[in-house]
């Protein structure tokens, strides 16, 4: 397989996995916080989380997955699953925060509507999820964009290993370091293209379910 294609697919896969993990936790949390009205503490924590320094998250997971670390026995350091987990931590506050902000503006209206028509709390929550889908799309796109363009954590936890954990961003760094600026630029354009295509797909899919 062409190595550039391989790196691109790996970037896509690991970023999607990270976004998915973050969404599994972040979407319900964001909806829940939005529906019940998040307190100052919760909001501050989420907003601070949006600015988590990737290198710090990377170092944290390095120590966590290091053979001497608490989860060293899993042998996950310098593997894609470790990268996906670390990246999901970076995407999580973005996804939860965006969803929370979007859900908060709709939560009261949706709850009143569903309750007044005799619906249950669960139905109100599901309706809120459906009504927030544009926001969810934005949240997922933001999370994915942050993750696929991230270089600090993925370098520390993944190690930029050829045929194993090299992704588009680390490949750009590598080529730049080697002085292969043209190759680096091509990879950078690919990165932009992938981000664009994924955002586009998210928007198309997210809005198609609207009926």
């Amino acid at each position: 397989m062409n190595e550039v294609l391989e790196i691109t697919l790996r970037s896509l896969a690991v970023s999607s996995a990270a976004t998915l993990i973050a969404a599994v936790f972040g979407l319900p949390l964001g909806l829940w916080l939005g529906a019940r009205g998040a307190g100052r503490l919760a909001r501050s924590l989420l907003y601070a989380g949006m600015g988590l320094p990737p290198v710090v998250v990377g170092l944290f997971f390095y120590f966590l997955f290091s053979r001497n670390g608490p989860l060293g026995g899993l042998g996950l350091l310098y593997t894609l699953p470790a990268v996906a987990v670390a990246e999901s931590v970076l995407a999580f506050p973005l996804i939860a925060g965006f969803t929370m902000a979007g859900a908060a503006s709709r939560a009261e209206g949706v709850r009143r509507l569903v309750k007044s028509l005799g619906g249950t709390e669960t139905q109100a929550f599901l309706t809120l999820l459906a009504e927030s889908r544009r926001v969810v799309v934005a949240a997922l796109a933001a999370g994915f964009g942050a993750v696929i363009s991230e270089v600090g954590a993925v370098t520390i936890v993944g190690g930029d290993i050829r045929h194993a954990t090299r992704v588009l961003t680390t490949a750009v760094v590598l080529e730049t370091r080697k002085g292969e600026l043209e190759r680096a630029a091509v990879l950078g354009l690919l990165l932009l293209g992938v981000t664009l295509v994924v955002s586009g797909l998210l928007v198309v899919f997210g809005e198609r379910e609207a009926a």
């Binding site: 209206g109 007044s116 009926a211």
Partner: peptide, 15 residues
Amino acid sequence: PAVYLDQTPYLLERS
């Protein structure tokens, strides 16, 4: 059943 209608009713983002 009694249905309450808001001053500015919430319309779903649907048809």
